[in-house]
Design a protein around this nucleic acid. Structure first.
Length: 114
DNA sequence: CACTTGACGATAG
DNA sequence: GCTATCGCCAAGT
């Protein structure tokens, strides 16, 4: 049975959205939050990813989600893999914990409906 | 139940 | 352009 936790549903939506991020693309917490209708809850989006268990076994490429500045803030939360490595493997160049050409490879969840 | 912390964002100075 | 502060929401202590 599902509890009356409203956040549980919100978290799930965040994971689903992140899973839809195409390879070689990145997005921001605020973009996802706004897409889900929680524009002011960008922090909760990052919180949702953290609730996953800081691992990707759930299938959510959290390394593709960065802050609005294109800066990788959550790399510290990764276990043994560097986000730069994962991103570089996808074709995304990272310099000094920051996404290169972030605006160029930025992906908006709005593209799903568009 | 109150205070603090946190994978953010926007605005002000 | 960079730094400082507030706002927002949820979870942990």
């Amino acid at each position: 049975m599902k509890k009356t936790s409203i956040s549980n549903d919100f978290f799930e939506q965040v994971w689903e959205t992140v899973k839809q991020i195409p390879e070689g693309r990145v997005t921001s917490y605020g973009a996802i939050a706004r897409f889900l209708g929680a524009a002011s809850s960008s922090r909760v989006v990052g919180y949702a990813l953290n609730s996953l268990g800081n691992d990707k076994k759930h299938g959510v490429p959290a390394h593709r989600v960065v802050n609005r500045n294109g800066l990788i803030t959550g790399k510290f939360h990764f276990k043994s893999v560097s986000m730069e490595e994962l991103l570089a493997r996808e074709g995304v160049l990272v310099k000094d914990n920051k996404i290169v050409d972030f605006e160029n490879i930025f992906w908006d969840p709005e593209s799903l409906v568009k």
